[in-house]
Amino acid sequence: MALKRPTGEALAEAVLASTGYVFKDRRLLETALTHSSAVKAATNNERLEFLGDRVLGLVVADMLFQKFPDASEGEIAPRFNALVDSKTCSEIGLLMNLENLVRADAALKARSRGSGGSYLADAVEALIAAIYVDGGIEPARRFILRYWEPRARMVVVKPRNPKSELQEWIAKTGDARPEYVIEQREGPDHQPVFTVSVQVEGFEPTKGTGGSRRAAEEAAASAFLLREGVWANEGSAA
């Protein structure tokens, strides 16, 4: 049988243990931990969730800016996206044992038991906002860094997609589109080597080789991005 959800002083003490913050306005805390699915709830955390998402984004962006001073925007952005997404917020909610503190529909909580879920991610963002409203940016920052900073270097960043990044970069500078042309195909059928050039109006073409047409196209796009300074010369990995 599930434990009864704490309220009032007991709730404030439970949240203090996981956040390090003492709420002055306990009604604000109750609202932050009340999901819109809660039966007969007079208010819910949707507005706080909206604000908390923005506070989280600001603090995490600043943290990454300070922690990785030599990283380009293209290297920081994927890490930022991974840190502020719903999955990460949900995982942190589980770490804080918020499942037992959030007021929400019993069936919704049962379906998500042990795996988080969006209602838990919403509660984490709402809690960030509640701390911000109740105590200001510094307590909110301390809480965020407590859980997000250890993940900053652990997060797995998706590898870059050179063709997509080339398309996006060109779209910022004009209406041209990259065209990939097979220049050469060598080797036996079971082990071919393709040479492909990428041609963009107004630029000299670049070439790339690979064991498949796609690999050669990606190599050509990577060479283009490196030559034009879109990617740093130390490599294309984030």
Results as ranks from 00 to 15, higher is better:
Leu29Arg: 05
Lys158Glu: 15
Asp25Arg: 13
Val15Gly: 03
Arg146Cys: 04
Ser37Glu: 01
Thr7Tyr: 12
Ala126Cys: 10
Leu56Gly: 01
Asp175Lys: 15
Gly211Met: 04
Ala220Asp: 04
Ala71His: 09
Glu218Leu: 02
Pro150Val: 06
Arg227Glu: 15
Leu56Ser: 00
Pro6Cys: 05
Asp134Val: 04
Leu11Gln: 06
Val84Met: 03
Ala220Arg: 01
Thr209Leu: 04
Pro192Phe: 05
Ala121Asp: 02
Glu149Met: 11
Ser90Val: 03
Thr34Glu: 02
Arg26Thr: 15
Glu201Phe: 12
Phe68Ile: 04
Gly114Lys: 08
Gly211Trp: 09
Ser18Cys: 14
Ala216Cys: 04
Ala106His: 07
Ser72Gln: 14
Ala129Gln: 02
Ala12Arg: 13
Thr31Pro: 01
Asp105Lys: 01
Glu30Val: 06
Pro69Ile: 02
Phe143Ile: 01
Ile128Cys: 06
Arg213Leu: 07
Ala32Asn: 04
Arg27Cys: 03
Glu9Phe: 10
Met96Ile: 10
Phe224Arg: 00
Trp169Lys: 03
Arg177Leu: 14
Arg26Ser: 08
Ala12Trp: 04
Gly114Phe: 08
Glu179Ile: 12
Gly117Lys: 00
Pro6Asn: 06
Asp85Ile: 05
Met63Arg: 00
Lys4Arg: 09
Lys40Gly: 05
Pro139Gly: 12
Asn100Ile: 09
Ser236Asn: 11
Pro178Val: 05
Val102Ala: 01
Ile170Glu: 00
Leu95Cys: 13
Val198His: 11
Lys172Gln: 13
Pro78Asp: 07
Ala171Trp: 11
Ser112Met: 12
Glu234Ala: 09
Glu49Pro: 00
Gly208Ile: 04
Val230His: 09
Glu91Met: 14
Thr88Gly: 03
Phe203Gln: 10
Val196Trp: 02
Asn97Trp: 13
Leu226Ser: 11
Asp25Ile: 06
Phe23Cys: 07
Thr19Ile: 00
Pro150Cys: 09
Ala171Asp: 15
Asp85Lys: 08
Asp175His: 06
Glu91Thr: 04
Arg142Trp: 11
Asn233Cys: 07
Leu51Thr: 05
Ala41His: 01
Ile76Thr: 11
Glu13Met: 13
Lys109Val: 06
Glu165Leu: 14
Glu138His: 09
Glu165Asn: 11
Trp148Lys: 00
Thr43Trp: 08
Phe203Cys: 11
Phe224Gly: 01
Gln167His: 14
Ile137Asn: 03
Asp62Leu: 10
Ser115Gln: 14
Glu46Asn: 06
Gln191Thr: 10
Tyr132Cys: 02
Arg5Lys: 15
Ala129Pro: 04
Phe68Arg: 05
Gln184Leu: 15
Pro192Ala: 06
Gln167Ser: 15
Asp85Trp: 05
Ala77Asn: 10
Leu101Val: 06
Lys158Trp: 09
Phe143Arg: 03
Leu166Asn: 02
Glu218Asp: 12
Phe143Lys: 02
Asn44Cys: 09
Ala14Trp: 05
Ala71Ser: 14
Ala216Gly: 00
Leu28Arg: 12
Thr195Ser: 15
Lys158Asn: 14
Met63Tyr: 01
Asn44Tyr: 06
Glu204Leu: 13
Thr19Met: 05
Leu226Lys: 11
Ala176Pro: 08
Thr43Phe: 14
Arg213Lys: 15
Leu108Gln: 03
Met154Gln: 12
Pro178Ser: 02
Val196Asn: 03
Ser90Tyr: 02
Gly117Trp: 00
Ala17Val: 11
Tyr119Trp: 14
Arg177Gly: 07
Trp169Cys: 02
His35Val: 00
Thr43Arg: 11
Phe80Ser: 01
